[in-house]
């Protein structure tokens, strides 16, 4: 086998990207609705892979990443909408943004850079805290984002939605960004930063004694993951054409974290697998909520039952198989799985 291929462990990202490509191609045989669903899944892959870059390697749960998704989404709204509409809906924007009418890829990257910048500021403070306290602090980061974006009426449109964002994102565009997200995550995980962060997760004290600066490793992953999440937000805004602060709050935080945990947060394959498995489940449940006719009877679940089922699945999964479906392993080519890492063993509280 090609040594370059093996040395950089390119099997995993290749298999994942091919799987996503296959899924996209298959969707063309189906209805327009199916194609939209697949695009949504691809956008979710971007977000969850973004979340994985931080949570997977550091083992620190983050409840704040949807703030970065939201920042990316609003960044795109500010830079791609018709200037005349912005003047009407968002009169408080700076003139530079007011007149901006950027190409969509450029705008998406710019929104993601804004998210990464916010992550750099917030992360440099939050990541000094211990694991549990840091998780709670990321939660307050999400709350800060929500308070600001729901009240800054002249710039974010307040709690109401901003409509009229151009929607160039379809399946191929989403696929391209999903591949980009996977490649970035993979490059980070085989880099010295990924390795350093994993060593901090496993044995913080030993890692420090080897000269690894835990805070710096965490911060690098935090900023990169915020960037990828920001890309996901930009795609989401340019897929739906609408942004709203509450769309990037608790419920999406829950969905994305559930996907990551069910797939297995310790490997990139786990993140992608989780998105696909859970998306299929959610899609089925949503169909049932709308009402499905089976033979003579119509099954009609009440609104909210989708979340209940997903929540129960999550709890059962955490009890039965806390390492997720993939248990820290990766899909690879040829089909040889790397041994499960010992990282998910229960750590004794001292």
């Amino acid at each position: 086998m090609n040594p370059f291929f093996q040395r950089h462990r390119l099997g995993t990202p290749l298999v994942l990207c091919l799987a996503l490509l296959l899924m996209t191609l298959l969707s063309f045989t189906g209805s327009a609705g199916l194609q939209r669903t697949v695009t949504e899944i691809l956008i979710r892959v971007v977000m969850v892979v973004g979340l994985f870059i931080f949570v997977g390697h550091s083992g620190v749960m983050s409840f704040g990443h949807m703030a970065f998704v939201g920042i990316g989404a609003y960044g795109v709204a500010w830079t791609t909408m018709e200037p005349s509409m912005k003047l009407l809906m968002l009169p408080g924007l700076h003139t530079l943004l007011q007149q901006a009418d950027l190409p969509w890829v450029f705008a998406t990257v710019l929104g993601a850079l804004l998210a990464a910048f916010v992550a750099l500021l917030a992360g440099s403070v939050i990541l000094r805290l211990s694991g549990i306290a840091a998780s709670i602090a990321t939660f307050s980061l999400l709350a800060i984002f929500n308070v600001i974006y729901s009240n800054w009426d002249t710039v974010t449109g307040g709690a109401s939605s901003i409509v009229g964002i151009p929607t160039p994102v379809e399946d191929w565009q989403a696929l391209a960004f999903a591949v980009l997200a996977i490649v970035l995550a993979h490059l980070h995980s085989i880099s010295r930063y990924g390795l350093g962060l994993r060593s901090v997760r496993e044995e913080p004290v030993a890692a420090q004694s080897c000269g690894i600066n835990a805070w710096r490793q965490l911060l690098v992953a935090f900023v990169l993951s915020a960037f990828v999440c920001g890309l996901g937000g930009g795609l989401d805004a340019q897929f739906l054409g609408v942004v709203n602060p509450d769309a990037y709050y608790l419920s999406r935080t829950f969905t994305c974290l559930t996907m990551l945990v069910i797939g297995g947060s310790a490997s990139l394959s786990g993140a992608v697998t989780g998105v696909i498995v859970l998306s299929v489940l959610i899609e089925l449940l949503v169909r049932f909520e709308a009402g499905v006719t089976l033979g003579a009877m119509t099954i009609h679940l009440p609104t909210g039952s989708q979340e209940i089922v997903v929540g129960v699945v999550m709890v059962l999964m955490l009890i039965r198989r806390p390492a997720g479906l993939m248990r820290g392993r990766d899909w690879s080519w040829p089909m040889r799985s790397t041994p499960a890492k010992a990282n998910l063993k229960a750590r004794t509280p001292n």
């Binding site: 083992g59 694991g131 998780s135 974290l257 945990v261 709890v315 955490l318 806390p322 229960a346």
Partner: peptide, 8 residues
């Protein structure tokens, strides 16, 4: 782990 129970 605390992270698991937190998620639960």
């Amino acid at each position: 782990t605390p992270a698991t129970t937190m998620m639960a």
